[in-house]
Design a binder for these strands. Structure first.
Length: 716
DNA sequence: CTTAGGG
DNA sequence: CCCTAAG
C-alpha cells in the first residue's frame, strides 16, 4: 500500500535552500500554504521547524520576542522544507531497507548530508515511517488546527528528538515562548528544548531539514556530531545509529511526562529532567562509558503516563532493601515475566526457582524470535494525554504501550481520502530498565550504569512489529488493505511494537513476520545492581524516563542483577495494569534462536542479535563468603547445589559463575597479595578457600579411586 | 541441564 | 565472563 505519495511534491521544491533566509522564507511560506491545504505536514517537519526557529532566534535574537504569529508561520514553512528533504517512503514494505531508512530519518533528519539520500529516496518511495508522520501532520492540517496547536502536537510527538539533542538553556525557552506565546504548556517548552538539542547535535534531523540553519547551529555549538561530517549513509548502517531513534522516542515520552508526569516517581527519576543523548555517538559512543560526558548531556525524565503508573507501583514495591549479602537480589519482575514468556525454552534453567530467575543476557540470544508471542514487545500506545486532546482528529488509532515496552508508540491513524492510511507514531519508548545502585554510589556511576543499560538495550537491534486487533501481523507481503489496515477499518486496533531484532537472520524463520527490521537493541536487558550488603536504590527505568542510579566504577561489583524483589511478580502485574490503557497490545520481548541457527556466523558483526556480554558484576566479599561457606559444606563439583544453597536469590549468578568464581578464588589465594586485583578478599576467606579446595580435591580423588577400585571388583 | 576446563 | 565438550 502506498501511504502517502503526495509528500514528494514538496520535497524537491524546497530542496536545498542555497540562498539563505530571504529566499527560503518566501519559499517556505508558499510551501506552507500549499501544504496546509494538502495536509502534507509531517510531524517531523514540526520539529524541524521548531529547530529552525530556534536557530534563527539564536542568530537573530532581536527578532524573537514579539512575532509569535509570524514565527509560527515560519515554523510551518520550515516544516515544509523539512518535508521536502525528508524522504517519504510511500510503501510500508517490510524490507529492511525501509526500516533503516526510517530510522535514519528518524535519527538523522537533521543532518545536512542526509538530505541527498533522502531526496533520492523520495523519488522512489516514501518511507513508511515518514508516511506516518506526514499523515499525521496532514491530519492535523485537515482539522485546521491552529498553528499553535499543531506545534504543540508536533512537539509532543517529537519531543523525543529534542531531548536527545541536548539541553540548551536559554534558547529553548525563548523559542517555546514565541511559539506558544502565552500558553506555557510544558510541552512547548519541552519542544523548544528539544529543538535546541537538535541544533546542538542530536537533532541533526532537524538540521537536515533546515539545512543551513542546522549547520550553523552545529558549528557554533559543538560540531561533534558525526552528522556534520556528512555521510548520511553511514548513519544508516551503523547499529549505533539506531539507538538514537530509540532514545528519541523515549524522549518523546519524556515530554509527555513533562506534562503529567511531573509527579515524582522513584527517587532518582523524579528529579530528572531529560535525558540527553548525543547523537554524535554514531560510532560507538553508545558503547558506553567511553565518553560519558559527551554522550549523556543530561537526563530529562520522559515518561509516558503509563510509565508513571508503573513506576509508582514499582516504587512502592521496590524499596531500598538492605540485604544480607547473598540473598538480596532484586528481581525485576516485569522483565522476568516477559522474559519468561519469551524464553520459555529456558524457563527451566533452574528448576528450583525458575520463577524468579533472571535470564542471563546470553540466554536471550538463544531465544527464539519466532515464538509467536506476537505481542512480544512494546506496543505502541497512544498517549492520549500526550496529545493534546483530540488534536489529532477523528480517528486516532489506538496506541498501546507495553510495560516493559521496548517501545511505546503513540500513533494515530487517519484515513485519507486517497485511501491512504495515515498513521502517526508519536514515539518509541526505550524499554524500561531496572537499575539498582547503592545509595553511596556516585552520580557519575549512576550515569554510567544507566548508559550501559541503555546501550545494551539499544545495541541489540529492534524491529517493528505490527499488531492488529491484538494480533501480530506476520505476513509482510500482504497489503494493508488485505490485512485490514485500511481507512475503512478501525485503526484503533492497530498498534506497533518495537521488538527485539532477531536480526537479519531471522529472515528465514521470521521473515514473514510483521516486523521491519529496525536497528535497535535488545529490549530487555535490565541492568540491575544490587549492593552487596547495604541498602541499595532500586530503580526501575522505564524508557528513559527514569534515571538511574549508578554505581561507582569500582563499585561495579556492587551491581548485581536484582532478581529477587520483595515482590517481583506484583510488580509485573502492576506494570501490566498500567498498560491497560492499551489492552490490545501486550509486549513481550522475543528473541530468536532461530536466527542464530540460521545465520550463525555472519551477523554477529554488529552484535545486534547477540546478547551483549553480561555486565561484569564482581563478587562482593559477602558473596565470596557465602560461596566459600557453601563450598565448604557441599564441596566442589556440586555447583548447582551451591547455587541453590547460597545464591538461590541471586539470579544473575549462575552455577557456572560460581564455579568460575571459585576457580578464580583458588587462583587468587595462591598468588601474592600484590598480584591480586579488585576488591580485596579477606585473607581469612582465601585461606578457607585453599583449605576447602584441598579437602574436596582430596575427596574427589578418593571417590574416583573408590569407583575405580570398586568397578573392577564388581566386574570381576 | 550440569560439570569441567580452556579462553 | 564466555564457550564448549562431555555426561
Amino acid at each position: 500500500m502506498v501511504l502517502q505519495k503526495r509528500l514528494d511534491y514538496s520535497f524537491y521544491g524546497y530542496h536545498v535552500p542555497t540562498k539563505r533566509r530571504a529566499t527560503r522564507s518566501a519559499k517556505r511560506r508558499a510551501t506552507f500554504q500549499r501544504r496546509l491545504e494538502d495536509n502534507q505536514m509531517c510531524a517531523f517537519d514540526l520539529l524541524a521547524t521548531i529547530a529552525d526557529n530556534l536557530l534563527q532566534e539564536k542568530q537573530n535574537p532581536t527578532i524573537s520576542s514579539d512575532r509569535s504569529s509570524e514565527k509560527d508561520r515560519d515554523g510551518f514553512s520550515k516544516v515544509e522544507c523539512q518535508d521536502a528533504n525528508k524522504p517519504f517512503k510511500t510503501e510500508l514494505s517490510d524490507e529492511a531497507s525501509c526500516d533503516r531508512k526510517c530510522q535514519h530519518e528518524f535519527v538523522r533528519e537533521g543532518c545536512p548530508d542526509a538530505n541527498k539520500p533522502f531526496k533520492a529516496e523520495l523519488s522512489d518511495e516514501g518511507s513508511s515511517d515518514r508516511k506516518c508522520f506526514s499523515n499525521i501532520s496532514s491530519q492535523l492540517y485537515n482539522q485546521n488546527c491552529c498553528l499553535k496547536e499543531l506545534l504543540q502536537h508536533e512537539i509532543d510527538g517529537h519531543s523525543c528528538i529534542a531531548s536527545i539533542v541536548t539541553s540548551s538553556s536559554c534558547s529553548e525557552k525563548i523559542v517555546a515562548e514565541r511559539l506558544v506565546d502565552g500558553k506555557g504548556h510544558n510541552g512547548v517548552e519541552n519542544l523548544a528544548s528539544k529543538v535546541e538539542l537538535g541544533s546542538s547535535g542530536c537533532l541533526e534531523s532537524s538540521g537536515c531539514k533546515l539545512d543551513g540553519d542546522v549547520s550553523k547551529v552545529k558549528d557554533g555549538k559543538v560540531g561533534k556530531v558525526p552528522i556534520d561530517t556528512g555521510t548520511g549513509m553511514c548513519c544508516f548502517e551503523d547499529p549505533l545509529d539506531e539507538k538514537p531513534p530509540a532514545l528519541i522516542s523515549s524522549c518523546g515520552n519524556a515530554k509527555m511526562s513533562g506534562y503529567d508526569d511531573s509527579k515524582p516517581q522513584s527517587s532518582l527519576s523524579k528529579g530528572c529532567d531529560n535525558v540527553l543523548v548525543d547523537s554524535r555517538d554514531d560510532d560507538e559512543n553508545f558503547s558506553g562509558y567511553a565518553h560519558p560526558s559527551t554522550k549523556i548531556n543530561s537526563f530529562k525524565q520522559i515518561t509516558c503516563i503509563d510509565d508513571r503508573k508503573i513506576k509508582k507501583t514499582l516504587d512502592s514495591k521496590y524499596h531500598k532493601v538492605s540485604q544480607e549479602s547473598k540473598h538480596d537480589i532484586l528481581s525485576n519482575s516485569v522483565l522476568d515475566g516477559n522474559l519468561k514468556s519469551v524464553y520459555s525454552s529456558r524457563k527451566n534453567y533452574y528448576k528450583s526457582q525458575r520463577s524468579q530467575m533472571c535470564i542471563p543476557f546470553k540466554k536471550r540470544k538463544l531465544f527464539n524470535c519466532s515464538s509467536s508471542d506476537t505481542n512480544s514487545n512494546g506496543y505502541i500506545r497512544s498517549d492520549d494525554t500526550c496529545y493534546s486532546p483530540k488534536n489529532d482528529t477523528n480517528q486516532s488509532v489506538s496506541c498501546s504501550s507495553s510495560d516493559h515496552g521496548t517501545s511505546s508508540l503513540g500513533h494515530s491513524a487517519l484515513r485519507s481520502r486517497d485511501s491512504h492510511v495515515k498513521l502517526r507514531i508519536k514515539s518509541f519508548r526505550v524499554p524500561e530498565l531496572f537499575i539498582e545502585i547503592p545509595e553511596t554510589a556516585t552520580v557519575g556511576s549512576l550515569k554510567r550504569t544507566v548508559m550501559e543499560a541503555v546501550t545494551a538495550v539499544l545495541g541489540g537491534g529492534l524491529r517493528v512489529g505490527v499488531i492488529l486487533h491484538g494480533k501480530k501481523v506476520r505476513d509482510d507481503s500482504k497489503t494493508l488493505l488485505q490485512t485490514g489496515i485500511s481507512h475503512d477499518n478501525h485503526l484503533d486496533a492497530l498498534g506497533f511494537a518495537l521488538e527485539p531484532n532477531c536480526s537479519q537472520n531471522r529472515s528465514s524463520a521470521c521473515a514473514t513476520t510483521d516486523s521491519l527490521c529496525v536497528p535497535g537493541a535488545d529490549m530487555h536487558q535490565p541492568l540491575i545492581g544490587y549492593p552487596s550488603s547495604r541498602a541499595a536504590i532500586h530503580q526501575r527505568i522505564q524508557g528513559f524516563s527514569n534515571m538511574l542510579a549508578e554505581h561507582q566504577a569500582t563499585g561495579l561489583g556492587n551491581l548485581v542483577e536484582s532478581d529477587h524483589d520483595s515482590a517481583p511478580s506484583p510488580i509485573n502485574t502492576s506494570g501490566e495494569k498500567n498498560l491497560t490503557d492499551s489492552k490490545e497490545l501486550i509486549t513481550v520481548p522475543e528473541m530468536g534462536m532461530e536466527a542464530l541457527a540460521v545465520l550463525p556466523v555472519h551477523q554477529k558483526s554488529k552484535r545486534t542479535e547477540i546478547a551483549p556480554r553480561r555486565i561484569r558484576r564482581p563478587f562482593s566479599v559477602a558473596e565470596v563468603e557465602a560461596l566459600v561457606q557453601a563450598v565448604e559444606k557441599l564441596g566442589t563439583g556440586r555447583w548447582r547445589d551451591v547455587k541453590l544453597h547460597a545464591f538461590d536469590n541471586a539470579k544473575h549468578r549462575t552455577y557456572v559463575d560460581l564455579k568460575d568464581k571459585w576457580k578464580t578464588l583458588v587462583h587468587t589465594a595462591r598468588i601474592s597479595p600484590q598480584q591480586r586485583r579488585g576488591e580485596p578478599v579477606p585473607q581469612e576467606l582465601l585461606d578457607r578457600v585453599l583449605t576447602a579446595h584441598a579437602y574436596w580435591s582430596q575427596q574427589q580423588t578418593k571417590q574416583q579411586l573408590k569407583h575405580h577400585s570398586t568397578k573392577p571388583c564388581l566386574l570381576l
